[in-house]
């Protein structure tokens, strides 16, 4: 009896509280930057593709829904020849983002991806690539890496000495 009364009281009290439901889709949910939604591939500050095709996101993915093939341009800069995410398998765990050494792959707060056909949930690189640096502006992996891939010359990167003169025996 007491419990019944208590329940009625609680329900009655909620009449005067702030509504939790919203009029979706007219009204949008507030989503925070770290919310793990649709996955995108971002770009470097120089406008080039950020992904270097290292396969770490694919290896980290627990449902194995990322497949790609790395290739390189004449200057040796690696990028994915194709990059595919099967969102019908993705569990939005964010492991790929965590594994990515270049900040290329990012989960953004967009979850409105529903499709009528499951096949349409397979995203290719063109669908994933956005024209933005995403959450990590200013970072270009090739500036901190050792190799010269046409972004910076050897010795011009962050914390690099000029290349050794290999013909010199001087101390």
């Amino acid at each position: 009896m007491i419990s019944h009364l208590r329940t009625m009281w609680l329900v009655f009290r909620h009449l005067f509280m702030k509504k939790a439901t919203i009029q979706y889709p007219e009204e949008k949910v507030p989503l925070y930057p770290r919310w793990r939604g649709r996955i995108v591939l971002t770009k470097d500050p120089d406008g080039g593709e950020r992904c270097v095709g290292c396969y770490l996101c694919a290896a980290a993915c627990p449902v194995d829904c990322i497949a790609l093939q790395a290739t390189e341009n004449e200057e040796g800069r690696r990028y994915p020849e194709f990059f595919r995410i099967n969102f019908s398998r993705c569990i939005f765990c964010g492991y790929c983002e965590e594994a990515c050494p270049t900040y290329a792959i990012q989960l953004i707060p967009d979850f409105e991806m529903a499709e009528y056909k499951r096949q349409d949930l397979v995203y290719e690189k063109e669908d994933l690539l956005i024209n933005s640096e995403g959450k990590y502006p200013g970072y270009n992996f090739y500036n901190v890496a050792g190799l010269d891939a046409g972004v910076k010359e050897k010795g011009k990167g962050k914390d690099e000495e000029t290349p050794v003169d290999i013909k010199s025996l001087l101390p």
């Binding site: 290896a59 990322i66 497949a67 790609l68 099967n86 397979v122």
Partner: peptide, 9 residues
């Protein structure tokens, strides 16, 4: 890796 994506296209 890629078991559920490599042929998904």
């Amino acid at each position: 890796s890629g078991r559920t994506a490599m042929l998904a296209n």
